[in-house]
């Protein structure tokens, strides 16, 4: 029996076949999947904010910020036996749910999340294989570690696989 592993907001989890991993209702948040196609190990982080320097909380929730979430996910995957050099990434999300003419910097959070995720992947030397980012639609994404396919569902544009 295969299961769907759910990842909530600011959460991180991992998956291996026959299970799949999913996160729902990504708005300006970004879903980051890092996977080892040969060993069929994958992890998903639901990133909410671009940088942990924004945190004003007494304890840092690592899954919330692009920089700490990706580093944490990377470490977890390595610990689970993924091959460092084989790691690849797919990302989706980072939409601008509402359009404002005069928004503050917080209103541009989607694009900022995407930029930060890409920068972080680059610094760890993880190639970004494909992405579906931006726009103004919410996304639900599901990753299958067996064939490394990422299925993206939106309200207005239906389903696509990257």
């Amino acid at each position: 029996m295969s299961e769907i592993i759910k990842v909530g907001i600011a959460d991180i989890n991992t998956v291996s076949p026959p299970d799949t991993i999913r996160t729902t209702g990504l708005g300006s948040c970004v879903g980051v999947i890092i996977y080892d196609q040969t060993k069929k190990i994958a992890g998903l982080a639901h990133v909410m904010l671009p940088d942990s320097s924004l945190s004003k909380a007494p304890t840092l929730n690592e899954g919330k910020y692009a920089d700490t979430a990706i580093q944490t996910l990377y470490k977890i995957l390595v610990k689970k036996g993924a091959d460092l050099k084989a790691l690849k990434a797919k990302i989706a999300g980072g939409a601008q749910m509402f359009q404002f003419t005069s928004g503050n910097e917080m209103m541009r959070i989607g694009p900022r999340n995407v930029e930060s995720v890409k920068k972080q992947l680059l610094s760890l030397g993880i190639p970004l294989v494909s992405s579906d980012v931006g726009g103004s639609s919410g996304r639900t994404i599901e990753f299958d570690p067996y064939n490394s396919s990422l299925t993206i569902k939106t309200v207005n544009a239906g389903i696509k696989v990257i």
Binding site: T24, S28, F98, F100, T101, M106, S137, G138
Partner: peptide, 27 residues
């Protein structure tokens, strides 16, 4: 109030938009 903005989409995607300020200090 600011000028309102409308969106028809997934509840989670929309609501998270209102959580950024609070999310820097709390879960």
């Amino acid at each position: 109030p600011s000028v309102p903005a409308t969106s028809i989409d997934m509840a989670g995607a929309i609501l998270s938009f209102g959580l950024f300020e609070i999310s820097t200090v709390s879960d």
